[in-house]
Structure formats: C-alpha cells, structure tokens
Design a protein around this nucleic acid. Structure first.
Lengths: 197, 197
DNA sequence: CCTACCGATCGGTAGG
DNA sequence: CCTACCGATCGGTAGG
C-alpha cells in the first residue's frame, strides 16, 4: 500500500518541518536541511509537494491541526467567562508544554511573514485572526450572559489577553525568563477578575 | 578623505540593512540583495564588515542607535508615573511612525533569533531586556514616589505594558488592523489609571 | 570601491 | 522513494 506509506511520510515531513520552523523560521527550513534531518533525499521530500511555497502552506496547516487538537479540542467548561478562562489557560499550557522546540509556531511565523506578501502570509493572518476573534467572541458571550461588565469592549479585552500570552512566549523564548508564564497567568487573572460582575 | 566616505557608506549600508531586516528578517538580508538594493557590488558591501554575523551585529547596533535617538532621547516629563506614560507613548509613536518598513526591528529579530544561539541572539536579548527593565524601573520609582499602589509588582506592570505595545505591532503588521495602536493606548491608559493613587 | 572567482547550498527537475 | 543533475544564489576571498 504505497499510498498509505506516502501519507505517513508526508506527515513525518510536516511534523519535522513545523518543529524546525519554530526554531529557524519557515524560510529557514530548506528542502535539503529537512531531508538531512529526516534521513531522506531532497527529491524524496519535495516530491510530496508542488513547490517550496506549497510545503510552507502545508506546514502551516499541520501547525493549525496541532493547535486545534491540543488547544481548541481541549477547551472545557461552560460557555462564558469560565470558557474564556479555559481558552487562555489551555493556550498558555500549550506554549509552556514546548510542543515546538522554538516556541509558538504562529508567533515565529507571524514575525517572519508579516513583511512578505503572498499566500503564506495571508493564511497566517487568517488563522491567527480567527483565534484572536474567538477569544473576543467568548468575551462578548460572557457579557451577554451578564458575567462581564457592560462597559467593557470584548475586542479590547481579547487584545489584552492575547497580548499577555504572546508576551510570555517572547519573554520565555528570547529572554529565557522562568517567570514568563506565571506573569501571563497573573495578568490574565487580574484582567478577567477586574471585568467580572 | 577616503575614511570619511567609507564611514558614510557604512552607515548607508546599515540603514538599508535595518530596513530590509524589519521586512525580511536579518537572515534574509543577504549580502547580494543588500548590494543590489544599494547599487553596489557584494564585495563593496561586505568589505565594511568582517563577516555576515559581523554585519548582523552592526545592523542590530544601528537599530539600537535609532531607538535611542528616536525613543530614549525623546522621553520627557517628570520621573515617576508621568515618565512611565511618556516611555510607552513615545515607543508606540515610534512603531506607529513606520521608521522601519516592516514594523519594529527588534520584534521581528527577536522571533527570528530566539531559536538560534549565538552573538546576535545574545545581543538582542540584552537590548530588549534593558528596555523592558527600564519600564519596570520607572514603575518602581513611581511606586517609591507614592504614585503607584504599594501592592503592585513593578515588573509585572512592565510585563503588561510591554505586552500591549508588542501586541499592537503584531496586530498592525500581520492583521493590518487600523485600531492596533488605539487599542494599545487604551490598554496602557486603563492599566496605569488602575494602579495610580 | 570594483571584477572575477571559489565551493556550498538553494529550489526544482529528469529519469528511473 | 532514489541518484544525478540544472541554473541561481549564498558567504566570502584574491587581486587590483
């Protein structure tokens, strides 16, 4: 069954690519280095994809799938403020758990591609905006449920909660400060406590 | 006076390099592309530096000098909470003013080098930590002056204020949201207002 | 500051 | 999935 083996190999390639990309950037994952890391030939790697950009787009989708199964699907709790807390906490756990060697894949890729127009950048913007807006939507729901003060702007709250987690990733990855995630949790908790009714 | 002309050319190279790096990353600034962008030969470019890493380190220093003259030297106001406000506001203005085509140089370079050990990464961590800790030190001073509640942790406050500005840079560069800096200002203002006595 | 060049690596293809 | 190869570009050097 060569088709099955091919799909398996493709997934192995993409797992390695997401990991390398969090360390060295998507553009830094050359076909040759990826092949070396996998013990394969270059043509064996790129044969699964139409082009380097196609490989990059597939790598982004692989990272999305991991985020969905590790974060989105693992969020529990009642809709509203409980779920809003669960979303940020699960996200922090995901980054803290070092599923990628170089920290959050999307954070690294965002910085790398924000100045490079094209399909990869567009997809990264689409996916990260979906997550930011999902946080905002949950805050809005909590507000409708009467759990958050009516004077709050849910999108503003999402901006700030999202900021704390991205800052923790930066502070942990570049500054290597051990208190990064503690600080993010403290910021999230006091921000949510402040708007709670 | 060949020495003067050489220093001038070197500065032209570094100005172009900081700008290209904010768009395409420090590693993406190849000697050949930099030479093309400047209308020079490759050897004319690299002749000013001992190596590619030396060029990258010099580019980081050039970005530091711009940050110092545009932000640090432009901060006004009395020490304490007034100065804390001025630091974040001047920083936001700097990023908002698009001095670099691709947004904050240090944010882009942080994400790129946090997974690449070496002198460039070390220097980036050193410089960004200095700025984060300067914000924290100003918050601590404001606290000693009795302008900030004694129960606040100045480093935690700095973490959060720093987070808002980095989030604005991300939101503006990748998502292209026009309200990015407005949201950062709102977050900074309400956070500082909350801890003020 | 230039031209001319070095070996290594890039993305990608031909052919099997 | 492989070997063998393509032209282009990489960082860097020799020599002027």
């Amino acid at each position: 069954m060569p088709k099955q083996r091919s799909t398996h190999t493709r997934q192995l390639i993409l797992d390695k690519a997401t990991d390398l990309a969090s360390l060295e950037g998507l553009e830094g994952v050359s076909i040759g280095r990826l092949a070396d890391a996998l013990g394969m030939s270059k043509s064996g790697v790129i044969g699964h994809f139409a082009s380097k950009q196609d490989l990059q787009l597939a790598t982004v989708e692989a990272a999305r799938e991991r985020f969905e199964s590790e974060v989105l699907d693992a969020i529990e709790g009642e809709p509203g403020i409980e779920r809003l807390r669960a979303m940020t906490e699960r996200w922090i756990q995901y980054i803290e758990g070092e599923h990628f060697s170089g920290g959050c894949f999307f954070w690294a890729a965002s910085a790398e591609f924000d100045g490079r127009p094209g399909a990869v950048r567009d997809r990264l913007a689409e996916l990260t905006a979906l997550w930011l807006d999902a946080i905002g939507a949950e805050a809005r729901l909590a507000q409708r449920l009467g759990e958050i003060d009516d004077g709050e702007d849910p999108a503003q709250l999402a901006f700030e909660l999202h900021a704390y987690v991205q800052e923790a990733n930066w502070s942990y990855q570049l500054l290597e400060r051990a208190d990064s995630f503690t600080r993010a949790r403290r910021a999230v908790e006091s921000r949510i406590a402040r708007v709670s009714i």
